[in-house]
Each structure stands twice: as C-alpha cells, then as structure tokens.
Amino acid sequence: MAHDSTLSPEEASKKQIRTIWKVAGILAFVTAIEFVVAFSGLHDTLKLLIFIGLTIVKAAYIVGEFMHLRHEVKFLIWSIILPMIFVCWFVAAMILEGGHIH
C-alpha cells in the first residue's frame, strides 16, 4: 500500500494511519452536516440535492480511500465506476417517474 517509495516502511505506515483517521474525521463531519441540514427546514428539493451530493462525497471517500480504489489501475477504477454511473441515472429517473404516477 506504500505509495511513496522514498519513505521508509515505518514512515509510510505512519502516513497511512494518519490518512485513515483523516478520512474517518471527514466522514463523521459530513454526517454531522447531514444532520444539521435534516432539521434546517430547507426546501425539499434543495434538501434532496444536498443529501445526494453529500452521500456521493462520503461514498467517494469510502470507496477511494478505505477500499483503496483511488490507488488502483485506471481500468479497474473505470470498470467499477462506469456501471455505477448508469445505476445513479436509473435511481434519479425513478424518482422523477414516481413523481408523475400519483
């Protein structure tokens, strides 16, 4: 997992652990913001967009750093991300379609 070959194994490991805790802090912080937004009385559509945006931020950190995808080969990154982009489109389409049914 060492990304920088100039670091000694101990230094690389320390750097890694620092990154892990930093990402954990970011995830906790984003969840806290979501809580604030949930009780802020914002307009529903705006709220929905903020929640989806923040969820994608969290997902990016979990997949990119915790699951290490950011540091994989470009082809591997795209073979996972590309199908998921279509799924996101599908979810968005169903939210819109659902609104036209009732």
Partner: peptide, 19 residues
C-alpha cells in the same frame, strides 16, 4: 451493488408515487 440498487430504485419509485 446492483441488487441493492434495485431495492433503492423500487423505493424511489414507490415513495414518490405516494403523496
């Protein structure tokens, strides 16, 4: 992820088809 997406897709459709 596709399996879970299918659940979330159904959720989105059903939820927004209710007032």
């Amino acid at each position: 992820a596709f399996t879970f997406s299918s659940l979330l897709i159904s959720y989105a459709l059903i939820r927004y088809s209710h007032p």
